[in-house]
Design a protein around this nucleic acid. Structure first.
Length: 827
RNA sequence: GCCGGUGUGAUGGAAUUGGUAGACGUAGUGGACUCAAAAUCCACCGCUGGCGACAGCGUACCGGUUCGAGUCCGGUCACCGGCACCA
């Protein structure tokens, strides 16, 4: 394992092979050097270089340390950042720690260690591990979301949101995780269970701080168009926001009340044969209290049952429709004056649209199913489908023609919608309406380890924001972090801290005891990197103007509708109030696939298939770890770990080392034999890194090394190889660069350029096809004309044999690739 | 149910976007070196038939367009991801 030559023998064979390098020593040497010389600190002074801001999602510093799941995206962006530096960019490639959150708190509770201490220790461990990977982060700019000098600005942003009416407190049914004992945002509930712990989520009525992300729904959709995000991210965000267009229509009840419904199919208004209100609808309470409902008992029982259902139960039970028909009140269809029954059912959601619908069983699957069960009338108003008594006809295209619909009869669905919408507007009973599935962001958490919400409650003055000069509002020390069963934050027991004075009237007041969610600190951290030590602002205007926006952000798909959406919302708000210079935070967004265990299953402790980067570094070195994780497969797709394949990358690096140290290399130019291959490789590797096709970039370098072994390599050849390999295996390349005496550090050299005209060899092999099938190969000069190529093909003995008695009718030449000949028998 | 994606050797994966399918790497087989092992180096490595040069087949399945299809079009199947009673 030493770089020394073997001491025994010294035969010719041994001097050529069997030499490895001491990666442990070399990696330590260069890591220390980069750190001491601040090699990767970006330039802050005047520079002519274009800026490049590369971002990776900062880690949550868990006790388990760095995972291979971190290594994949971090190595990828490190490769890009290193290459861009060599391209001449002023690169900002920062790292930090997203350290508030439940896991730390839970760990602290279990082990009786203060979360601040746990966080500190974990960050120290992570920092060490990140250094061991050789990442070229700018270590002068580390941020930590739990640092008061950081969360001061998280709180500041919250206050601005509040002052602009985008933060409000309201009582509403929220998602409550039964295990975390904490509310969750919609985005944190996956299939009815808690995204983090998997415990069932129930609905609970609670007063919560909310952020009005819905005010930005349309802009969050529209502005995606100008962004260089991978398509599936855009699609997922659009689906999540869930825009739909339709109309709101006012139905009268027989009581004289207005019932406003939302529909995407106003064209089917004549087919509305009943109405459904959500169990929580306000009118029901009103009717109940005024004694209008003959079956108030049954209605109340249904409401109770619906309220107690968890999200999971609601989705599981969605096959069978339930509901109660209101006895004593009817609705009136405004287009024909018909009295129709009103039901309550939990298939209508209180939180979407108006919480009430008109039901058109002939043309909606859910309404149809409900109507069948409850014996409601089914009237066809769009023809073109099967019998609507047997199934709903839901097509919205031009296949359907309106019938039984008075003045819109004969129109297609598409044409009928604007006609009826206009009619509704003229009559004053309806109007076009856009709705979104996106809900406001539930922003408070009943937990300790988070940013305190800087608000004060005064019985006289109501909610008051803390004056900005009192920020940061420090998270106080508590003895017990346990979440409470009554749903109050642990902070609520800290009476000294809770009791304060009202910033408005000076009277006694109480602080908000809920804290902010995990997603708060990460919603703006990329801004802090631009100017991390500023105590006057979240970042200076100059820094924001220079570095905004993030040029390239790589992260996980799991954050598409959480962090990525939230931070776009905050950024747009900060843009609106003049704090940041760009509408969008991130110009380009890419995403990596997961690293799976050896058998293709998800890595987990219980399966015992977790790969620890430290072990790989110890056994093979960080350069091998980096090269392998980039070579493992298509970057965007999931890939299974393979211990054997790691060895292949180690072998490759050993071959490079041996090639560099055991052979004489002369000549600063590219050697004649390798010239075309080197130019081709530079082109391919340059393009592949930018396209995140790291696996094929490495394959190209492997081929190049194979060529060098076959042909011998000049000093110039080797130089190009080291430059191209250095983003992947930086330590070894630095060492070889130094040993070869090229001067300076390889990571600070210009990236090699290629000459397109030199990427092709002088003669090329071309395939000869006859009727589309390859029959022979010919060697022709690269610049041969079409006629010359065809002549050469026809001269080929095998082709002559096939052409006997035939006439050439057509020939197609694909330059440098193949020639296709089509013959027909001679008449 | 709706939206999106994927399907290529034993295996991870390539294929300049319609141009020689299987690059590169694993694993495997044979050989060299070694007392031996490891490491390293060389050769082979889709399937079928043939001693062989060679021939036929082959990118989930069926069909189509084309001189030429892994790539484009129509249909089928399987798997993965997201959303889901959103009116």
């Amino acid at each position: 394992m030493r770089a020394d030559k073997p001491d025994s023998g010294g035969t010719i064979q041994e001097s050529v092979i069997n030499v490895k390098y001491n990666f442990t020593e070399i990696e330590k040497k260069w890591q220390t050097r980069w750190k001491e010389e601040r090699t990767f600190a970006c330039q802050t002074g005047k520079t002519d270089k274009p800026k490049f801001y590369a971002l990776v999602e900062f880690p949550y510093p868990s006790g388990n340390g760095l995972h291979v799941g971190h290594a994949r995206p971090y190595t990828a962006m490190d490769v890009v950042a290193r290459k861009r530096r060599m391209d001449g960019y002023n690169v900002l490639f920062p790292i930090g720690f997203d350290a508030f959150g439940l896991p730390t708190e839970n760990f602290a509770i279990k082990n009786h260690i203060h979360p601040a201490k746990v966080t500190h220790d974990n960050i120290e461990n992570f920092t060490k591990q990140l250094h061991m990977m050789g990442y070229s982060f700018d270590w002068d700019r580390v941020v930590n979301t739990t640092d008061p000098s950081y969360y001061k600005w998280t709180q500041w942003i919250f206050l601005q949101l509040y002052k602009h009416g985008l933060a409000y407190k309201t009582t509403m049914p929220v998602n409550w995780c039964t295990s975390c004992k904490c509310v969750l945002a919609n985005e944190e509930v996956v299939e009815g269970v808690c995204e983090r712990c998997g415990a069932p989520v129930i609905r609970k009525e609670k007063s919560q701080w909310m952020l009005k992300i819905t005010a930005y729904a349309q802009r969050l959709i529209d502005d995606l168009d100008d962004l260089d995000f991978i398509e599936r991210v855009k699609i997922q965000q659009k689906n999540w926001i869930g825009r739909s267009t339709g109309a709101e229509v006012t139905f009268k009840a027989t009581t004289g009340d207005d019932i406003v419904v939302y529909t995407t199919r106003p064209d089917t208004l004549f087919g509305a044969t009943y109405m459904v209100l959500s169990p929580e609808h306000a009118l029901i309470k009103k009717w109940k209290e005024s004694g209008l409902l003959a079956n108030a008992g049954a209605v109340e029982a249904y409401q109770k049952e619906a309220a107690s259902k968890s999200d999971l139960e609601r989705t599981e039970l969605n096959k069978e429709k339930t509901g109660v028909c209101l006895d004593g009140v009817k609705g009136i269809n405004p287009v024909n004056g018909k009295e129709i029954p009103i039901f309550i059912s939990d298939y209508v959601l209180a939180t979407y649209g108006t919480g009430a619908i008109m039901a058109v069983p002939a043309h909606d699957d859910r309404d149809w199913e409900f109507a069948k069960k409850f014996g409601c009338e089914i009237i066809e108003v769009v023809s073109g489908g099967e019998d609507v008594q047997k199934a709903a006809f839901t097509a919205k295209d031009e296949t359907g023609i309106l019938v039984n619909s008075d003045f819109i009869n004969g129109l297609t669905v598409k044409d009928a919608i604007p006609v009826i919408t206009k009619w509704l507007e003229e009559k004053g009973i309806g109007h076009a309406q856009v709705n979104y599935k996106l809900r406001d962001w539930v922003f408070s958490r009943q937990r300790y380890w988070g940013e305190p919400i800087p608000m004060v409650w005064c019985d006289k003055s109501g909610w008051q924001p803390l004056p900005e000069d009192q920020l940061p509002l420090l998270l106080p020390d508590v003895d017990s972090y346990e979440p409470t069963d009554d749903g109050e934050s642990p902070l609520s027991k800290m009476t000294d801290w809770v009791n304060t004075t009202c910033p408005c009237c000076g009277g006694p007041a109480k602080r908000e005891t809920d804290t902010m969610p995990q997603w708060a600190g990460s919603s703006w951290y990329f801004l802090r990197y631009m100017d991390p030590h500023n105590d006057k602002a979240l970042a200076s205007k100059e820094a924001l103007d220079y570095w905004s926006p993030v040029d390239w952000y790589n992260g996980g798909m799991e954050h598409t509708t959480l962090h990525l959406l939230y931070s776009r919302f905050w950024h747009k708000f900060l843009y609106d109030i003049g704090v940041v210079p760009t509408k969008e935070p991130y110009h380009k967004r890419t995403s990596h696939g997961m690293i799976l265990g050896e058998g293709g299953e998800k890595m987990s402790k219980s399966r015992g298939n977790v790969v620890n980067p430290n072990d790989i570094i110890e056994q093979y070195g960080a350069d091998t770890m980096r090269t392998y994780i980039m070579f493992i497969g298509d970057f965007e797709k999931a890939a299974a770990w393979s211990a054997n394949a790691v060895k292949g990358c180690k072998r490759f690096l050993d071959r490079v080392w041996n090639l560099a140290t055991d052979q004489e290399h002369t000549g600063e130019e590219y050697s004649k034999a390798n010239e075309a291959a080197v130019h081709k490789a530079i082109k391919k590797v340059s393009e592949d890194i930018e396209a995140m096709k790291f696996n094929t970039a490495i394959a190209t370098l492997m081929s190049l090394v194979n060529d060098f072994y076959a042909n011998g390599a000049s000093r110039g050849d080797m130089k190009a190889l080291l430059l191209m390999l250095s983003p992947f295996a930086p330590h070894m390349c630095e060492e070889l660069w130094e040993m070869a005496g090229y001067g300076g550090q390889v990571c600070l050299q210009p990236w090699p350029s290629y000459d397109e005209s030199k990427t092709v060899a002088e003669t090329v092999q071309m395939a000869v096809q006859v009727s589309g099938k390859v029959k022979a190969n010919i060697q022709v000069p690269a610049d041969a004309g079409d006629d010359e190529v065809v002549a050469a093909a026809l001269a080929e003995p095998k082709i002559q044999k096939l052409a006997a008695g035939m006439t050439l009718v057509k020939s197609i030449v694909v330059k440098g690739k193949l020639v296709s000949l089509i013959f027909k028998p001679q008449a």
